[in-house]
Write a protein that binds this DNA or RNA. Sequence first.
DNA 1: CCGCTATATGGCATGGCTCATATATAACTT
DNA 2: AAGTTATATATGAGCCATGCCATATAGCGG
Lengths: 189, 189
Amino acid sequence: MLKFALLGFLLRQSMTGYDLAAAIRSSINFVWPAQLSQIYRTLGQLENDGLVVSEVVPQQGRPDRRVYSATDAGRQAFDGWLGELVTELDPVRTPFLVRFFFSGTRAPEEMVTQLRVLRDLHLRQRDQLAHELPGYIAEFAAANTTDDRDPLIWDAVRRAGEMHAQTWLDWIDETIARLEDAAGKAQPR
Amino acid sequence: MLKFALLGFLLRQSMTGYDLAAAIRSSINFVWPAQLSQIYRTLGQLENDGLVVSEVVPQQGRPDRRVYSATDAGRQAFDGWLGELVTELDPVRTPFLVRFFFSGTRAPEEMVTQLRVLRDLHLRQRDQLAHELPGYIAEFAAANTTDDRDPLIWDAVRRAGEMHAQTWLDWIDETIARLEDAAGKAQPR
DNA sequence: CCGCTATATGGCATGGCTCATATATAACTT
DNA sequence: AAGTTATATATGAGCCATGCCATATAGCGG
């Protein structure tokens, strides 16, 4: 996966691993975060497979930059990947829900507290996606050769994140209400 | 993660790895699927760590059953896990959105087609969560010692899946409309 | 002097995935 | 009647991607 994301960026513009990390951070981080170490390792594989090549650019004071560029084979691999058809939903792994599923033995107030904490996190996430990310994307677009449909698409991806964050907020509110309702009925008056 | 899920089930009821796979399939599969091989390996680790013990029950015709039970240490570990506070959102990895992010070079109709395929999958998923899962959960509840808050909680987890599936549907509709709108404007009359 | 930015690389642990294998019965399919 | 597939059960080998942590260098801002 990361493999293809890196190729995708490099096809727009050659850059270093460090730059790639920044590109990811200002774009797809919320759907596919990556550590620097992971990026470098993956670049190594890509180079091994001939999908990218690198060129060392000496620098003073800093480690030399190693600038990566996608090759023709890289473009082909990437295009193949883009053309793949979706046949199954990717499994979604949601640790929180697993925990929640098993927390029937816990005090209801504790569950509500946990939900409130989670709510805060999702709220921040939603606001970040709604307000901060657009700025990063604009910068990123300005710095990159962009197809004219890119802004629309990037915004759609951003929107997906925003909508899901909102759905979490709604779910949490609904769930807290249900828990409180049940607690109210359990020990009435 | 799986470790704790298994413990959670075993604390309700001792069972074999095979049974655990079935328990997962009829409950948290959509938030945490697991292969049989993975389950057995994890049970092995749990046993090593003294969190579960197993007892072999001979059978004719079939491989002997190895029935696992959670130990006291297992209960403690599990409780500790349940008590953990959420401090950060779990990263959500969504391969589809990564692909989508990079598909600016593709024909818009192709993107729409892909979105329609995805829509179908999410639609099925939503309906399954809305209609089939409740039945499984009911069966599962009948077969297990359940706390009286369990049904509420299990349904909340189910609802989270349903709501997220619905959000996907909404996002896809919105995105298709935006793409078609843009295409209409690009080549008018 | 601490910590951040820029840059690259290494090692180890974790946990998931795929595929293979073994065995017996029952239930379909041709 | 023969053959496939499914169900119940357990286990092993090997791959792969991620994660976390450490290290090296150097300049700049506090």
